[in-house]
Simulated assay, not measured.
Amino acid sequence: MPETLQLLKYTYVEDMATLRAPHREAHLAAIEASRQAGDLVIGSAVGDPVHTGLLGFRSDTPAVAEAFAAADPYAAAGLIVSFTVEPWVVVTPLP
């Protein structure tokens, strides 16, 4: 049965792979906390070199994803150029 997630898509600054290093541990800790809370089900950086991040949240509204983006250490460090949140209908089973 399809499930609708809220897909958070980041656009990162150039040279993200280098610039994220001092903030990566805190960013990954935020991801893990959201996963343990049951909100985040999938996430990853995209590209080589990295230029985008995608994170899928279980939520009926974009609010959870937007709150994550606002509190993300990458945002505080100025590494996120922009972000969007859109519904994503997933047709394969999720854990």
Rank of each mutant, 00 (worst) to 15 (best):
Y10K: 08
L55R: 01
L94Y: 04
G47T: 07
E86K: 12
I80H: 07
A45G: 14
P87Y: 04
Y12L: 15
D15N: 15
P22A: 08
V90H: 14
P73W: 09
W88F: 14
Y12Q: 00
V91W: 12
I80F: 03
W88R: 02
L5Q: 02
V50E: 11
P2W: 01
G56C: 15
L79V: 01
P22S: 10
E14Q: 08
A75Y: 02
L19I: 05
T52E: 14
T11E: 15
Y12A: 06
P2M: 01
A71S: 14
E86S: 12
L40P: 04
K9I: 07
A76G: 11
F68R: 06
T84R: 10
H23Q: 09
A63R: 07
A76M: 06
L55W: 09
Y12I: 01
P95R: 11
V46A: 08
F57S: 01
S44W: 12
L28F: 13
L19P: 01
V90F: 08
V90M: 12
V50P: 00
G56L: 15
A75C: 07
A69I: 06
A76Q: 15
V50C: 10
A67N: 09
E25C: 05
H23I: 09
T92W: 05
M16W: 13
S59G: 11
E66N: 10
A69S: 04
A71H: 02
V81M: 08
P93A: 15
I80A: 03
R24Y: 03
V89W: 00
H51E: 13
F83Q: 08
R58V: 11
E32F: 10
G78A: 07
I42L: 14
L19C: 05
V13L: 06
E32L: 12
L54H: 12
H51G: 11
D48R: 12
Y74C: 11
D60P: 07
D60E: 14
G43I: 00
T52H: 13
D48H: 14
T61L: 01
D39L: 11
D72H: 08
G78W: 10
T92A: 13
D15C: 02
A65M: 05
H51L: 00
D39W: 13
A71P: 05
Q36I: 05
A17V: 00
A67R: 11
S82F: 06
P2C: 02
L40R: 09
E32I: 02
E32Q: 15
T92S: 09
D72Y: 06
A69K: 04
V64K: 09
S59N: 10
L54E: 04
E66H: 05
M1Y: 08
P62K: 09
W88L: 07
P93T: 09
E66W: 04
D48N: 15
T11Q: 14
L40C: 12
